[in-house]
Design a protein around this nucleic acid. Structure first.
Lengths: 127, 127
DNA sequence: GGCCTGCCTCGACGTCCGTCTAACCAGAGA
DNA sequence: TCTCTGGTTAGACGGACGTCGAGGCAGGCC
């Protein structure tokens, strides 16, 4: 549907965006679903989920692509494609320093997604 | 051909499954990614995200399909297909009572996914 | 039994996705 | 400048996905 306009075009999922109420508390409206679903979709691939984890759990807060690529049995372009998907979903941010490109996680979006999936521990009001 | 005898085939994402450490804390191994990615993938469609929310936020803890279908501009088979996807991802559970079929959320999996996406509030002081 | 309703399954169609190879662009170094 | 390395982009291909119409099965009602 959406064309590939700008490479760094980020949806409304910035850290400035409001915290959506939990999915199990209020029915998610169509517009919210249209905004959040692409983020879940980006995490819906095993390779991207591992990439996201490697980036988010990096010691220095960032990872060089040269450290990501050899961790998979995939070609460089394929990894680059997955990173672009994560970038367009607003989950990571890229920065080129010299020859190398470093990726960094956007914790705000992860927090929003986690909040959306959060569930009440035990609704004891109903037996 | 799979009969309707066991439509509840669930992957390893039951409430009994262990809580995976946050994605940003430890690198997600390949097997974990292979198990969790389908759940995110199932939530990666706007229709399914809304369906999941409608089911999880139901007052009585369950929703009849007859209440879900008219909420979308989609045909019955399409909604049924999306519900099957959520079912196979282990996110919801179905039960037929008389003529109607009721869907119920599995909060354990939502909790696990939320825990996986959880991020430290402010890692300013490296611990 | 006959019929009606609710939901699922089947088959089909167009589109999107994941992967690859080949080619291109950006910096660094000599 | 020329070359080498690192990363992205372009194009292609097979498979999966989202949607639909048609048909089937289960349960309730007359």
């Amino acid at each position: 549907m959406s064309k590939q306009g700008a490479p760094l075009a980020v949806i409304d999922l910035n850290a400035d965006a409001p915290c959506y109420p939990p999915l199990a508390q209020r029915r998610v409206p169509a517009e919210t679903a249209a905004v959040l679903a692409p983020a879940f979709k980006a995490l819906g691939d095993p390779v991207r989920l591992q990439l996201m984890s490697m980036i988010a759990s990096a010691e220095d807060g960032e990872v060089c692509v040269c450290d990501l690529t050899p961790a998979f049995d995939l070609t460089g372009p394929t990894i680059s494609h997955h990173l672009k998907t994560l970038r367009e979903a607003g989950l990571v941010d890229a920065e080129r320093r010299g020859t190398w490109v470093y990726y960094r996680a956007r914790p705000g979006i992860l927090r929003q997604l986690a909040a959306l999936l959060s569930v009440e521990p035990a609704p004891s009001s109903q037996a």
